[in-house]
Design a protein around this nucleic acid. Structure first.
Length: 287
DNA sequence: AATATCGCCAACCGCTTGGTG
DNA sequence: ACACCAAGCGGTTGGCGATAT
């Protein structure tokens, strides 16, 4: 017993879409939208296609504001960073890259980005050399990328970390961002405003700062300081999404972080991170 | 010049999720 | 609580152009 087909396979066209079909679908969508039912759409639009096929064609290619072509370095970094923390959840990753589709990002990762990273080894662009403080630490790292597509704002936890090539992108220190959110309760919820460290077995997750989503996958269900046994997660300065941000994670020195790791029984074997000096502050990066 | 291999990406398949009655 | 169904999602495939042999 197989799964019932979603449409009459004998009477639907498969394979690449012709320009005529594209026009037909686009015009129908612009006039009527889906009407909340993709399955019924092809017949209404006069297309000999399966509803799923129409949906995919619209979402991945025809809908407005789709961005095609080369990925920027910033996009690369966001993808790497999110992949490191949540894995291949392409739709979530895509939600942080305006104009990009999950399919596009998935293809890009599988065909190019993964290979590019393998060529580069554990480091990725914007890495700074570990300084003397981190001589006993490995130099795995990735960027911390607090990011919000809803604000169209890429927020760095330090205004000094990223090259700003685009005047439309604003950069905030964590402190100024916290203040921005506190004074604008209508802004948000924000997603991914956090820094993490994982050990090399990918089993211990240490989370700094605040997190805004209500999904548990990124640790946001664990808002208080302490260790979560199931997730093997040490939350430092955790807080919730609704404007309730805690103190700046940069306030911790590396010695204090080590102390927290040790007193909370998080295994420090092969813990892979390094400290990056920005001005006089110590900053943890995560991989 | 002919053929094989590679790289890319649009599209498909089927499982999971979430809404509804 | 349960069944049903459409949408969402991610892994995989197939076709096509580019490159290598």
């Amino acid at each position: 017993m197989g799964r019932a087909p979603c449409c009459d396979k004998a009477n639907v066209k498969k394979g690449p879409w012709s320009p005529e079909e594209d026009v037909q679908l686009k015009e129908y969508m612009e006039k009527h939208g889906t009407g909340g039912n993709w399955i019924a759409l092809p017949q209404k639009a006069g297309l000999k296609r399966c509803g799923k096929s129409c949906r995919l064609r619209w979402l991945n290619y025809l809908r407005p504001n789709i961005k095609h072509g080369e990925f920027t370095d910033d996009e690369d970094r966001i993808i790497c960073s999110l992949f490191a923390s949540i894995g291949s959840r392409w739709s979530i990753i895509a939600s942080q890259l305006p104009g990009r589709t999950d399919n596009d990002i998935k293809n890009y990762w599988n065909t190019k980005l993964k290979k590019k990273l393998m060529r580069m080894g554990p480091s990725i662009p914007h890495q700074k050399k570990p300084n003397s403080l981190s001589s006993n630490l490995q130099n795995y790292y990735s960027i911390a990328s607090p990011y919000s597509s809803s604000l169209q704002t890429h927020i760095s936890s330090s205004p000094y970390e990223y090259q700003c090539n685009n005047n439309n992108i604003n950069y905030y220190s964590t402190a100024s961002f916290t203040s921005l959110i506190s004074s604008n309760p209508c802004v948000g919820p924000m997603h991914g405003d956090y820094n993490q460290v994982r050990d090399s077995n990918n089993s211990n997750l240490i989370m700094f700062g605040s997190e805004a989503s209500c999904s548990s996958s990124d640790g946001s269900n664990y808002f208080s300081n302490g260790v979560d046994e199931n997730q093997k997660m040490l939350i430092i300065n955790g807080s919730d999404a609704n404007g309730c941000f805690s103190e700046n994670p940069l306030d911790y020195s590396i010695e204090e972080i080590k102390q927290l790791i040790s007193t909370n029984n998080v295994s420090s074997n092969n813990l892979s991170f390094f400290v990056d000096e920005i001005k006089t502050e110590e900053k943890l990066m995560y991989y």
